[in-house]
């Protein structure tokens, strides 16, 4: 049984913030602004809780279990403790601290991005095997077309007016398609929001 109090708080908070957006009266804004501040603070606290849960609930727990993953958990815990200790001690604005963090984080994540390029290329190679339908075929053609356009090898088209118009037309297609999809997503988002605001959908137990 969901707690009616938590539901009431959630619905009222949502409606107040929404009303403050629709009708920006000073009284409503005075209520809405601190509420948004609380939401931001709560989100930060939730992040902290989640990190502690990850460290204690997952990685520390894994240390007690045999297996190859134990080593990685040790690395994660040590890295976390080092960053946390030095971050608190030196402060996030310290140049050396920043340099160390970026020297580790940036290369790792950039490498993952490069890995993603290979992964996606490989997936594209197999795409028509996976999606043997007209949607898959259209997707395949689109991938080829826009890769060619974005590679810049059609730069000579500037001298051919018809081709230039055609290419600029092609450039509009993704925007048009995206707009249609985004409209649908917006409606879906509205539906999800309404369900929560009228208290019928409750992703919390209270």
């Amino acid at each position: 049984m969901k707690s009616p109090l938590s539901m009431l708080v959630a619905v009222l908070s949502g409606l107040l913030v929404l009303a403050g957006y629709f009708f920006p009266f000073p009284a409503l804004i005075a209520i809405r602004t601190p509420m948004l501040d609380w939401a931001v603070t709560l989100a930060g606290i939730a992040g902290l809780v989640a990190i502690i849960n990850l460290m204690v609930g997952v990685h520390l727990k894994r240390l007690r279990e045999p297996g190859s993953k134990r080593f990685f958990s040790i690395v994660v815990i040590i890295s976390f403790l080092m960053v946390a200790v030095f971050g608190f001690y030196l402060g996030p604005a310290d140049q050396k601290f920043q340099r160390v963090v970026t020297a580790i984080q940036t290369p790792i994540e950039t490498s993952l991005m490069a890995l993603l390029a290979i992964t996606l290329t490989y997936s594209s190679l197999k795409m028509l095997q996976r999606q043997r339908n007209w949607m898959g075929f259209v997707f395949f053609l689109s991938v080829i077309l826009f890769l060619v356009i974005n590679s810049g090898i059609l730069a000579f088209s500037a001298e051919i007016p018809v081709l230039q118009d055609l290419l600029s037309g092609f450039h509009q297609i993704p925007a048009a398609g995206a707009r249609g999809i985004l409209l649908g997503i917006a409606l879906g988002s509205l539906a999800a929001g309404v369900r929560i605001l009228i208290g019928s959908d409750k992703p919390y137990s209270g």
Partner: peptide
């Protein structure tokens, strides 16, 4: 720019070839 264009074109060729093969080859 050369690296960018050559890598892009290589990907295009690979996807095109694999797509044609997939279309010609019967399904699994």
């Amino acid at each position: 720019l050369g690296a960018f264009q050559s890598a892009m074109l290589l990907v295009v060729v690979l996807i095109l070839v694999s797509g044609v093969v997939a279309l010609i080859r019967p399904a699994r």
